[in-house]
Design a protein around this nucleic acid. Structure first.
Lengths: 122, 122
DNA sequence: GGTATATTCAACTAAACGGTTGATTACGAA
DNA sequence: TTCGTAATCAACCGTTTAGTTGAATATACC
């Protein structure tokens, strides 16, 4: 329990059922029973899934009599987006620079692989 | 094995070591041994991690003699970003609409919780 | 050929995960 | 107070996962 926030969010969303629950909560708040209805799962299982989403900060719960409606929290998504975008950008940056570099040396044979056969071997 | 693409990417990034590897690969391609160096892990373990990233489509491998340098693939990140942004936007949309709704009815007591004590209880 | 290096494969283990069933708690209504 | 409903807790189970060690494969160098 209690891993770093990013790990928790990513692994919470690694499960397709939980992603579906998030998708549905994006439309409207829902109780455990409501959430469980479409799945071939016990409410206990869904309750557990909800707990995982809650621990990851993706969902908050309120109380309405016996019911404990779940509500999607949008803020946590930013954590992920920031992380993802950062490294995606860096990787693309690097790719772009490589492209430029290759454009600057148009004589080098860039063919399939290992174009330099400086003697030896076979 | 072979879960849906989104699950694979999310669960690949749910591990802090793997996220760190991605972060480093965003800077420069690296071999298994290079990647393993800073961690308190065997190369075999790192090789496995790399395999997970590769299966998720986050990393591609080339060959350079005995070495098999890993290269970060930026495209797959978009899958995640799209998914995340979609539901984040919906959730925020909904939040905004709720705000507007509350603004339209300024007489309702919105206090802490359950402000309506219509008789009974206690 | 033989040796060194880089990587992977195979088998194993401990812990975490996703699910179950059964009991328990919390609350509202009669 | 008793009953019904919503949700959680607790114990258990099979599978996956992250790690290990040890053997195997691939490639370059001499």
């Amino acid at each position: 329990m209690s891993a770093d926030p990013l790990s928790e969010v990513f692994s919470a969303l690694a499960d397709p059922t939980r992603r579906d629950m998030v998708a549905r909560l994006a439309v409207a708040d829902a109780t455990v029973n409501e959430l469980a209805e479409p799945y071939d799962l016990t409410v206990q299982a869904v309750s557990k899934h909800l707990r995982v989403l809650e621990d990851a900060g993706l969902v908050s719960r309120t109380r309405d009599a016996q019911r404990r409606p779940a509500h999607l929290e949008a803020e946590v998504f930013d954590l992920m987006t920031k992380w993802i975008e950062r490294y995606r950008r860096e990787a693309e940056e690097r790719y772009r620079r490589l492209d430029e570099l290759l454009a600057q040396m148009p004589d080098q044979p860039v063919g399939p692989n290992k174009p330099e056969n400086k003697g030896k071997k076979k």
